[in-house]
Design a protein around this nucleic acid. Structure first.
Ligand SMILES: [Mn+2]
Ligand SMILES: [Mn+2]
Ligand SMILES: [Mn+2]
Ligand SMILES: [Mn+2]
Lengths: 147, 147
DNA sequence: AATAAAATGTAGCTAAGGCTACATAATGTA
DNA sequence: TACATTATGTAGCCTTAGCTACATTTTATT
């Protein structure tokens, strides 16, 4: 098996910490879809008056089939309220999540731009980065902005 | 249907850009597992002399079953070479990817720490953020570091 | 009102990536 | 060497999240 445990020089990163970090990241991935959806629904509701399946599909870059199935899950999880052939509405919990994500998204984009990254690149990177920014890191980004 | 197209005020973010960003992020998620695996394999090979399935499982925070199936995919994709009951080896392509990821990981962690984020939090956030940092953003992080 | 078009829904497929339970191989120890 | 332990492998399950093809409902246009 090869188990140096004590004899070998310590691993670059302790396994326990990396395992913890990776599990943390996987948990974030699980909520990532929900976050992007509620944010898009809030955006569309504000700009178009209502959010429809086709609009979401276009906005999210997936087919309407994928949107439908995901909405069913989000309803099950209490973020949205969906009725057949009707517009999609956020629940209180969904609205709250959307507001948090919108706020965080804005800070991440502004922070990247403040480092000299062009808007489009900042927007693209932020879309992935945002979901892995902890409150501590978000605060550091915000602080760096009003400096 | 509700199709204001021209009449309504422009969406907060253009749908096309957001769709593009989200598709980009989904593509990054697809390579994320490969990146974390080859990095862990390189680390273990360096510190332990070889990388075994159990070590990877502990390091990655998953069961050995998950490791096994993922290794089969990574072999199919040409990143590792695996033989039953033997240690796991990186191919040239795997070693190259591992080096890139290791380099990027280090910069992201150092950058977060330079903003005052404590080491453990920096390590946790970096594990998720790293996969969404484009070359442009990585360069900006590095530049900010040697300032 | 009839018809055409668009939106929405559903059936069923794929792949990744988790898991438990169990089987087999390799290794360490009495 | 025999036996126990550890490591590895495999069968089969689940969920998420993508898709195409097709059915149904709603909406827009004659
Ligand atoms: Mn996002
Ligand atoms: Mn976002
Ligand atoms: Mn990672
Ligand atoms: Mn890493």
């Amino acid at each position: 098996m090869k188990t140096p445990t004590r004899s070998a020089k310590p691993a670059v990163r302790p396994s326990a910490l990396q395992a913890e970090s990776l599990q943390h990241t996987r948990r974030e991935h699980a909520s990532e879809t929900a976050e992007d959806y509620v944010e898009a629904i809030a955006d569309l509701s504000a700009s178009q008056g209502e959010a429809r399946v086709v609009d979401l599909a276009r906005r999210l870059g997936v087919t309407h089939v994928t949107v439908n199935r995901t909405l069913a899950r989000l309803q099950r999880e209490g973020y949205v309220s969906v009725r057949p052939y009707r517009a999609i509405f956020l629940t209180d919990s969904g609205r709250k999540l959307a507001a948090e994500c919108h706020h965080r998204h804005g800070i991440v984009v502004a922070f990247l731009q403040s480092l000299g990254i062009p808007e489009k690149a900042a927007e693209i990177d932020a879309e992935g980065i945002e979901h892995h920014v902890s409150p501590v890191t978000l605060a550091a980004f915000a602080k760096h902005l009003n400096r």
